[in-house]
Amino acid sequence: MSGPIKIALPKGRLGESVYAMFEAAGYGCPDAAEDSRKLFFESADARVRYFWAKPADTAVYVERGAADIGIAGKDILLEHSPDVYELLDLGVGRCRMAAAAKKNFEDYGTGPLRVATKYANIAREYYGGRGREIDIIKLGGSIELAPIVGLSDVIVDIVETGRTLIENGMEPIQVITDISARLIANKVSYRFRHAEITQLCERLTAV
């Protein structure tokens, strides 16, 4: 049997709430709360080893086998299509991926729709499936700014409460998909550590 199960957790609030679920499921580590700067923490008893990673990177660690399992948002899985198993919807970090525009915006379909987004693949897939030609404007953040300053017609982004949109004179126009945190597994780890990973899933489901 090879070492503890390596688990990639996303840094931040989501990671902390997911770790609490693992803890409740019997996979807690005594030294988890000791030093928040620690990158790793491990429980020899529970045979797990956690590490914190940038939320957008956890799927990369899992896909490449640096972690056996990990937590990734559905938005990351849809955008990057990592070659991993998606074993559980953890039901936390819930939000929506939506297209939004300035209030009263109408798409007359007379030219390519200018779409500002961090999620180019999701936007391409969504509008491609509707036969709508688009011009993707890839941005790194503050996506809401784009329609206001005339950079784009619409945005595709994560919407939690919708409050930021409303405060900036915008509104969601189409919900693309629901988003939540997912438990993912490396495809080789799943096979060689099947019993351990299945038991972990069952315990998490029961929390």
């Binding site: 090879s2 896909e63 490449r64 086998g65 070659d83 490396n186 495809k187 080789v188 096979r191 060689f192």
Partner: peptide
């Protein structure tokens, strides 16, 4: 086919 330690088929 999979081999332990190699992260894909």
């Amino acid at each position: 086919g999979f081999v332990e330690g190699i992260p894909a088929a």
